[in-house]
Design a protein around this nucleic acid. Structure first.
Lengths: 314, 314
DNA sequence: TTGAAAGCGGTACCAG
DNA sequence: CTGGTACCGCTTTCAA
């Protein structure tokens, strides 16, 4: 039944025939009990309604399914406590591996308590981070080279004569910090000052960001780089309200190359963080480890691509 | 351990203490074997990368998790064969119930072969359709009143003097047919002809739709109603290319009230199909059936709400 | 109230 | 190549 070579073709056919006849369905719990595995991976993300995470899960599921693995989905929420509890719950389901989608899981980087739960989880089952970074036994990461992408983006704007580039972010996640570091490095390398007033913290919502911007009446800037597309589009909406022309008077760039970037007007320059590659590579490595017991790289970095559209003039 | 009342408090505490001490984790496979249930529901959708389905899964997962149920996610793809195969696979996992998200699962309505696999599945486990409609033993549906919403929308446009309203659709799903029926009924009730040339089949993609529209040079219309937001935004992009003013010369309305509707320019009038209600009600009914053995309604219809924004002048 | 024992439905290993 | 048997770890039932 499991394709063992130790069974004659004849017997095999006979068994298969009887199975068909009695419409027999194997009990996968019993199999799970015996093998202590259900060929199932747990996928966790803060919220599947988010465009980026939904895409990630889509890529992961497709490839896992192709290789005969099932997916248990868990939407943990964003808070530390929710993440920890949900991780525990996932582990209790005896999944073969745990995949965590989202930079948020690997914490802000300076507090080891924030990531203790992942190190813990990794003692029971391999943990794969998509777009997160964490060193540790049994922990594997795949992430985009956000630093480099942001460095490029910022440098391009500086080259086009932009003097005051607003950096919009909404969290202290690994990814957000990488991006900010890239932004800062580009400024410094071009001999520009890094100004605290140009680091603009907001939410990842179009309207909220637009209104925040409208509120800060004496904040001067001639370019905006946002950590996610929604915020950049908030800036676009702000520009429209104020009658500021884009990209002539204001350059705007976003991140993730979401469907929103192709929807807004003018269309948004955005960084494609190559999520499909991240996900596919992760699954391939995971299965190499699980099935062929191969050693795999602990950490993979993938280059981004800047999708140039109409909100920038480079 | 399972909170049975037949055990003294003292013993219970003792057991719990030992469990803690040995950091014991119950084997859920063994439990599954015994109870023939893992408190797990299977959620199927054609593609979780789609905004609408991602939202639905998000609502479902959140509420199921709240009640202690886990989710197995399956992205079946859109074709009949993929749907059938994936359904079989889901059933083999011995889930407690199967939820299918998306109008596509219930077929085009006139071919019983298309839905045989669902009726089949329902013999093994209860099936819940989100935004689909199908009568049958052990099959439960929740869907939006798309007919009515489309009737209203079309009527509003007619009242504002629109003469040639283009109806854009991309499939023959239950939902799409309801929408078209509402559109037609409104035309007829207002004494307008139903014109085949004004039923415009496209894909659910902004660019594709824009280009299709650009191509049909002698198609005249002064309003567009689309079955999903992407298509409506395609019409918006078309209008921009052609220099047609919205909503003055062209009214546009979409469906689903997705994040895109609030992102495009001008912002899109769109029908909110109350997905959160659909999902929450479905989960509640499901659990009432599963745990309290209650009889539940086979079919629930929820009213939509038209979110009026800038692409229409009513 | 508790302990012992019989399944649940597979897998893996053994002797034939 | 095949049939038989001992588990896997939990639930349930029954006797003590």
């Amino acid at each position: 039944m499991n394709g063992s070579p130790k069974v004659s073709e004849k017997t095999k056919q006979k068994v298969l025939a009887v199975m068909e006849e009695k419409s027999y369905t194997p009990n996968i719990f019993a199999r799970g009990l015996g093998l202590d595995s259900m060929k199932t991976v747990g996928i966790m993300c803060p919220d599947i309604a988010d465009d980026y995470m939904a895409k990630a899960v889509s890529y992961l599921e497709k490839r896992l399914h192709k290789y005969g693995y099932g997916c248990i989905l868990g939407c943990s929420g964003f808070s530390q406590e929710e993440r920890e509890n949900y991780t525990k719950l996932m582990l209790s389901k005896r999944i073969d591996t745990l995949v965590m989608v989202g930079s948020i899981y690997s914490g802000s980087g300076d507090n080891p308590d924030e990531i203790a739960y992942i190190k813990n989880a990794a003692q029971k089952t391999p943990v794969f981070l998509i777009n997160g970074h964490l060193e540790g036994e049994n922990i594997y990461c795949a992430y985009a080279d956000d630093f480099h992408a942001m460095y490029e983006l910022t440098t391009s704007m500086i080259r086009r004569g932009k003097k005051r580039i607003l950096f919009m972010y909404n969290s202290e996640s690994f990814s957000a910090r990488q991006k900010m570091a890239g932004y800062e490095a580009a400024l410094i390398d071009s001999g520009y000052p890094v100004l605290g007033e140009l680091k603009f913290r907001t939410k990842n919502e179009i309207r909220y960001t637009r209104d925040m911007l409208l509120q800060y009446k004496n904040l001067q800037f001639d370019a905006v780089i946002a950590v996610e597309d929604e915020m950049a589009i908030g800036a676009l909406k702000y520009a429209r309200v104020k009658g500021i022309s884009v990209p002539e008077e204001l350059s705007v760039a976003g991140y993730n190359d979401s469907s929103l970037a192709k929807c807004c007007e003018p269309e948004l320059t955005s960084v494609d963080s190559k999520l499909s590659i991240l996900c596919n590579v992760t699954v391939d490595h995971m299965l190499a480890m699980l099935e062929k017991k191969e050693d795999i790289e602990q950490s993979i970095k993938v280059s981004c691509e800047i999708k140039k559209r109409c909100t920038t003039d480079f």
